[in-house]
Amino acid sequence: MNTTAPYRLLYIVTGLRIGGAETVLYNLVSNLDRREFEPAVITLGQNGPLGKKIEEAGVSVISLGFHAGVPHPRLIIDLAVAIRRLQPHLIQTWMYHADLVGGLAAYLVGALPVVWGIRHTLTSVRSLKPVTRAVVGFNALLSHVIPSRIICCAESARESHIRLGFSRKKMLVIPNGFDLVAFRPQPEARLSVRYELGLEDHAILIGLGARFAAEKDHATFVRAAAILSRQMHDVYFILWGKDVDWTNPALTAWINDSGASHRFRLLGIRTDVARLLAALDVYSISSVSEAFPNSVGEAMACGVPCAVTNAGDAAWLVGETGITVPPRNPQALAEAWKRLLVMTPAERAALGMSARQRIETCFSLPVMVAAYSRTYRDILSAHSG
């Protein structure tokens, strides 16, 4: 531990909207030991909801106000000026565009250790927007020159980027950590959520919380729900996230075609995710691509057993406390749900508690913060030497 003044850490992030990667950043900077590290955050875009939360945690947030899109040379210059003013001991960038722009700005300033943050597993660069595809290509080349280390949130992210030409020797994996106080079993949520949704107390709930995007494959979830609905008559499916509401034409068409539309509740963006998770009997994802699925870890922390597709590090995350099935297989997903639901309530609760214990042991927030702190400490020590 640094026994004099704390090390100044500067985090550079693409944006601060509400999202999984941004939430992990918030959890990290708000839980660092301030006796050892003094964090500050620069967002390349506008400040957002998570930026306000970071500021409330006592961390300075600076917004450069640039729009998303092609990285502008002026952005690199403005960022270099900000870096000179703040004089950090170490820079941690967060996501592709910030890795590129922050890495180049730090290179201009000189003599600063830089740590990149990769938050995504790439199954194919063709799935990326053209600009992002170009940024990833530049980052692969620069990874051999600029960063001291590259931290990936998942083993699948590390392997996929090594295949794209990123420096293997600089990569390490630090899985996301979960807040066991915010995400915990809440017995009262079971009844309150069912009351809110107009359901009987004994209704079975299967949930999915994810933005509407191709890689989340909501279509497979809906098809699996249709299969299970024909076999079990007291099961309901609650979905939430950006664009997950009845105004989404594609999603509503799938649900209407399923023949089980009365079993679905679409809730849109919610701020009470921990409450929703704690009310579930089973949590599930149907993704074809993931890195380290935060929602699964949060559900496990709430004591909810999970059925997941084998995407990214989802199978590793649930381990033996849940069920993993192949992506794009509605029948297998429906069967996994049924396997969990035919358990007695006591058996399912015990499995959920095993899931929470796995999070506490392997993927808690203190474990993640300690791993980042140890990495920063090692880099700063080597740099000063």
Rank of each mutant, 00 (worst) to 15 (best):
R377M: 10
A349H: 12
N256V: 02
L112F: 07
F237T: 06
T344Q: 04
V115A: 03
R275F: 07
L341Q: 05
D179P: 14
A219Y: 08
T375D: 10
W337M: 12
T23G: 11
G322V: 09
L267N: 09
V244H: 11
S373G: 08
V136S: 10
F264P: 05
A80Q: 09
F138W: 13
G322W: 04
L191S: 14
E200M: 02
T271K: 14
G102Q: 04
D243R: 12
A334H: 07
A214D: 08
G65N: 11
V193H: 15
P88W: 00
T361M: 09
R211Y: 12
S160T: 12
Q331I: 04
W254Y: 06
L64Y: 06
G312A: 06
P327F: 14
R190G: 07
R149S: 11
E188L: 12
A224T: 09
F183N: 06
E155R: 10
K53C: 08
G19S: 15
P185N: 05
R265L: 06
E38I: 00
Q46M: 04
R377S: 13
T309H: 02
L64I: 08
A213F: 13
V244I: 15
R84N: 11
H262Y: 08
P293H: 07
R119D: 05
I150C: 05
H233A: 08
D179M: 11
G58N: 00
T121G: 14
D179W: 12
F292G: 11
A274P: 13
V145S: 00
T375N: 10
L380T: 06
T361G: 06
A250E: 15
K52Q: 15
G65D: 11
A40R: 13
T344H: 06
V222E: 11
A219V: 05
C153K: 01
Q331T: 12
R158V: 10
M300D: 04
M353E: 14
H262V: 03
L280N: 03
V288M: 05
I206G: 10
S127P: 05
W240T: 01
P327R: 15
R356H: 01
L128C: 15
L44W: 06
R348S: 13
I118S: 01
N310A: 08
V41A: 07
D217P: 06
L172G: 01
L86K: 13
Y26K: 10
Y7C: 03
A225T: 12
L100C: 04
L79V: 07
G20K: 13
G65K: 08
L365W: 08
H161P: 14
A334K: 05
L208Q: 15
V29R: 02
G69E: 07
